[in-house]
Amino acid sequence: MTAYVIVIAAAAVGLVGWAFARTTTVRVVTGAGLAVALALAVVATIFEDPVTGSRHDVMVLFALVLAVSGGAVVTTAAFEVIDSARPAVGEGATVKAAADVLRGGAWIGALERLAVFGALAARWPEGVAIVLAVKGLGRYPELRAQETGGTPHSGAAERFIIGTMVSVIWAVACVYVAFAPYVVGVR
């Protein structure tokens, strides 16, 4: 029941954070809070009885919301931390400069997390490979143009990889919280 409550609360915070977190500090604090909440939910699923019935359906729905909205906040927070920890190499080496190169990244990331969650919830892990392949092939022309003629040291390729990894790991953790006791046979 603990994981159930944590997932619902974190999904609500994720939605609010996705919609209203505009400053660096708020994004980083919200992202860190969501990461801690998801980690606690993962631990709770290990030690408590699984949620069943209609509560499980509600938990899956809120885990999906947490995957999509919370993942956006956590991914942005990760970029904020990366940018603040290391001074930019060139003028274009920030999250905003990479976002100029990789337009639509926030929506693509949300759709990516939705697709990863759906594929794993449907017990079709091959779907994750397809999602990543489509994303990589879709971004290849922009990343290639950046490498050959774009702003030097923009960091777009690195940010593409980091954003994808954070996003996918977040979605996988949300699926784990929703389905682990049933898939792994914990109980």
Rank of each mutant, 00 (worst) to 15 (best):
A9E: 04
A10V: 10
A11L: 15
A11H: 09
V13Q: 05
V16N: 08
G17I: 09
W18K: 08
W18F: 11
W18L: 15
A19Q: 12
F20D: 02
T23P: 08
T23V: 10
T24C: 08
T24N: 09
V28G: 07
V29A: 10
T30D: 03
G31A: 08
G33P: 08
A35W: 04
I46S: 01
I46Y: 00
F47P: 02
V51A: 02
G70Y: 00
A72Q: 10
A72F: 05
V74R: 09
T75M: 10
T76H: 02
T76D: 13
V81H: 11
R86V: 14
V89K: 13
G90N: 06
G90F: 03
E91S: 11
T94A: 05
K96E: 14
K96C: 05
D100F: 04
V101G: 05
G105Q: 08
W107H: 14
I108H: 07
G109H: 15
L111A: 11
L111Q: 03
E112K: 14
L120D: 09
A121L: 02
A122C: 10
R123F: 08
V128L: 13
I130G: 02
L132C: 12
A133L: 14
A133K: 04
L137P: 08
R139F: 15
L143M: 13
L143I: 12
E147S: 11
G149L: 00
G155S: 05
G155D: 07
A156Y: 03
M165W: 11
V166C: 01
I169L: 15
I169M: 04
W170Y: 13
F179H: 00
F179T: 01
V184E: 03
G185T: 00
